[in-house]
Lab assay of single mutants.
Amino acid sequence: SKICLVCGDEASGCHYGVVTCGSCKVFFKRAVEGQHNYLCAGRNDCIIDKIRRKNCPACRLQKCLQAGMNLGARKS
Rank of each mutant, 00 (worst) to 15 (best):
19 V>K: 13
75 K>P: 14
54 K>V: 08
33 E>S: 13
2 K>Q: 15
66 Q>H: 10
59 C>Q: 00
57 P>N: 12
47 I>S: 13
34 G>P: 03
74 R>E: 15
29 K>W: 07
38 Y>N: 07
8 G>M: 09
4 C>V: 00
49 D>C: 02
54 K>F: 13
26 V>C: 06
14 C>W: 10
13 G>T: 14
70 N>R: 12
59 C>H: 02
45 D>K: 08
66 Q>V: 10
61 L>Y: 15
1 S>K: 05
23 S>A: 05
43 R>P: 05
59 C>N: 01
5 L>V: 04
5 L>F: 11
31 A>H: 02
37 N>I: 09
70 N>V: 12
72 G>K: 10
58 A>L: 04
20 T>Q: 03
9 D>Q: 07
48 I>T: 11
11 A>N: 14
58 A>C: 15
20 T>H: 04
36 H>C: 10
41 A>M: 15
64 C>Y: 02
59 C>G: 00
41 A>R: 12
59 C>S: 01
28 F>Q: 02
17 G>L: 05
36 H>L: 07
62 Q>I: 06
24 C>W: 00
16 Y>P: 05
52 R>E: 05
22 G>F: 03
49 D>A: 05
37 N>D: 12
69 M>C: 05
12 S>Q: 12
34 G>W: 04
59 C>L: 01
37 N>M: 08
8 G>K: 12
26 V>Q: 13
20 T>F: 02
12 S>H: 06
62 Q>S: 10
59 C>I: 00
13 G>R: 14
49 D>P: 02
76 S>T: 14
69 M>R: 02
4 C>N: 00
1 S>R: 06
16 Y>T: 11
57 P>F: 12
38 Y>R: 07
21 C>P: 00
47 I>T: 14
44 N>P: 02
14 C>H: 13
4 C>T: 01
9 D>M: 05
74 R>F: 07
18 V>Y: 03
29 K>Y: 15
72 G>L: 12
49 D>V: 03
75 K>T: 14
38 Y>A: 11
42 G>Y: 09
72 G>T: 06
17 G>H: 04
52 R>K: 09
45 D>E: 14
42 G>S: 14
72 G>E: 11
47 I>W: 04
31 A>R: 01
19 V>H: 07
53 R>K: 08
54 K>H: 06
43 R>Q: 08
33 E>Q: 10
26 V>R: 15
62 Q>W: 09
43 R>M: 13
29 K>V: 07
2 K>P: 05
55 N>W: 07
21 C>S: 01
72 G>M: 10
40 C>H: 02
65 L>H: 15
21 C>F: 02
61 L>G: 02
62 Q>M: 14
62 Q>F: 04
37 N>F: 03
27 F>Y: 02
25 K>E: 12
67 A>C: 11
49 D>W: 03
15 H>Y: 09
52 R>S: 10
6 V>F: 00
54 K>M: 12
66 Q>C: 11
65 L>P: 02
47 I>K: 14
3 I>V: 04
28 F>I: 03
15 H>T: 06
39 L>F: 11
15 H>L: 07
19 V>D: 13
25 K>L: 11
5 L>W: 06
15 H>V: 06
72 G>P: 14
35 Q>T: 08
13 G>W: 03
45 D>F: 04
35 Q>C: 08
64 C>F: 02
32 V>N: 08
